[in-house]
Design a protein around this nucleic acid. Structure first.
Length: 467
RNA sequence: GGCCCCAUCGUCUAGUGGUUAGGACGUUAGCUUCUCAUGCUAGUAACCGGGGUUCGACUCCCCGUGGGGCUACCA
């Protein structure tokens, strides 16, 4: 343990798919740990697999990180641009005889594995050509490059899980590069974490079994290892690792649906961590202050969309209306005036869980030709005739006033409500204005609609019940 | 099959030997109310099992059980 070491952490995604919740949470925990400890947060793109790496995924990662507010201090560093560095280390291993070329075919490898499983042994490749390839006389450079894991115990202290122990001999000869120019994951990760002076490797639990391999490679090269912290996984409803088959969607997709980045961050951080108090809504600054790896859980956490929705709703409800309106604009009809949008958003902000819902909820404001069943105008056991009568009274009363603000309208209605009944009056009015069984209150709607449109809609409703 | 990890309400979790096992989401009921939503109040619901250790285990140890991860010339 070296507590004096400068804190440097990295988030190291591979651009082989869209940026997921799991990626985001790993990035977040790294970010929080770095900020909390006044360290550096490094973004490293692990694009050694040229077949599967794509520019669009890399773009998605970077945009999502920015959107979430997880800014990095160094990088992005691309592994594909570091081939020369890896090459030197491969050579070192080759020269020292710790690595060698192995040209067993996939078929042979599979057969070996199958036999091992049948014999209830650990499946691993132990190359019978190791000795030959390592002799000075044999210089055959065919096949892939493997590293023989020494037969020793590998022990490391995981910051979240405590002491973890592995047996090196059970690992066998692991692949570290396809050739000198094409290194593989476990090798590049080991090299880079050491080269970049990464103090803490904070990553998903699915990497636990890679850790001893990487440590062994570092030891063989006399490189310094990082401390490790393996995060619990985010699980799907069936408790298995969250994936597309659970309908898992990318962070960008959540953004499109109208989840706020702050809400997403807040939701994610609570998956496997809590501050030990009952506080559960916090912004990034507060999280940086409160965060500690010691309070991270060991068990996986099931992704619960309802909870995300609730948190998102909380953020929307508490957000400044001006700011919220800006964010809602893309979900409102094209050309909606900002001033008008603001009124509508203010009215609905307590009703939406995600921004995308604003369009559907407010469409009646933008549509002057509402289609609805006249029966909908009926409150409880009223007759159509009563409905018509009440609407006519309302029309008459409203046409005589110019004060179309909510308060004045409410005052105006007080005597009428006493006479005709609140529900009997307000339900038909509200339906006439919104065309919907559920909506904000009639006074709020009238204020936004204004006198002219209000009267027009009431007249239309009267016509509907007259037929 | 092998190696490894994990285990408190349906879900996210608090809890570090003595608690009426707490909170939140969801859900149920009620209040507010013309409807919906918000808000408020109340209710529902958990320590995987078996052994130890101890005066006393949700908490510590062991063994089961269950779930999960890894097991590539992917990362």
């Amino acid at each position: 343990m070296d507590n004096k070491r400068k804190i440097r952490v990295r988030f190291a995604p591979s651009p082989t798919g869209l940026f997921t919740m799991g990626n985001a949470r790993t990035a977040l925990f790294n970010y929080l740990f770095a900020k909390k400890n006044k360290g550096k947060f490094i973004l490293r793109i692990e694009d050694t697999d040229i077949e599967r790496s794509e520019k669009k995924y890399e773009k998605d990662i970077i945009e999502s990180l920015k959107w979430l507010g997880l800014d990095w201090d160094e990088g992005p560093i691309y592994q594909s641009e570091r081939t020369e560095i890896y090459q030197q280390y491969i050579k070192k291993l080759l020269d020292s005889g710790q690595a060698f070329y192995c040209d067993h075919t996939k078929k042979e490898l599979e057969k070996e594995k199958k036999e091992q499983i049948d014999k209830k042994q650990a499946p691993r490749h132990i190359c019978n050509k190791f000795e030959i390839r390592n002799s000075k006389f044999e210089n055959k450079k065919k096949g892939i490059i493997r590293f023989r894991c020494p037969d020793k115990k590998v022990v490391f202290d995981d910051l979240i899980r405590g002491k973890l122990e592995f047996n090196g001999s059970l690992l066998g000869d692991i692949s570290i590069a396809k050739d000198k120019q094409t290194p593989l994951y476990n090798f590049t990760a080991a090299i880079d974490d050491a080269e970049m002076q990464i103090s803490h490797v904070i990553r998903g639990e699915d990497h636990i079994s890679n850790t001893p391999k990487q440590i062994l490679i570092q030891e063989a090269l006399e490189l310094k290892s990082s401390q490790f912290a393996h995060l619990p996984l985010i699980l799907g409803p069936d408790k298995s690792k969250m994936s597309k088959r659970h309908g898992a969607i990318s962070v960008g997709e959540y953004q499109k649906q109208g989840y706020l980045s702050e809400a997403l961050v807040n939701f994610m951080v609570l998956l496997g961590w809590n501050p030990g108090t009952e506080k559960e809504i916090f912004n990034l600054e507060e999280l940086i202050k409160e965060f500690s790896l010691e309070r991270v859980h060991k068990g996986g956490a099931i992704f619960n969309l309802q909870r995300l929705d609730w948190i998102n709703g909380q953020y929307i409800k508490n957000m400044d209306t001006n700011e919220l309106t800006e964010k809602c604009l893309p979900y409102l009809p094209k050309g909606t005036e900002l001033k008008f949008a603001k009124k509508v958003v203010a009215l609905e902000k307590e009703r939406i869980k995600k921004l995308s819902e604003i369009g559907e909820l407010t469409k009646f404001f933008f549509n002057d030709e509402l289609e609805y069943d006249p029966e909908l105008l009926i409150w409880k056991k009223m007759s159509l005739k009563e409905v018509k009568n009440n609407l006519e009274i309302l029309e008459k009363k409203l046409s005589k006033t110019e004060d179309f603000d909510q308060k004045s309208l409410e005052d105006l209605m007080i005597p009428l409500r006493e006479k005709y009944g609140t529900g009997e009056l307000l339900w038909p009015l509200r339906v006439a204005l919104s065309g919907q069984s559920n909506s904000p209150g009639p006074f709020e709607i009238m204020e936004i609609l204004g006198k002219e449109k209000t009267l027009k809609r009431i007249k239309k409703a009267i016509k509907k019940v007259s037929l």
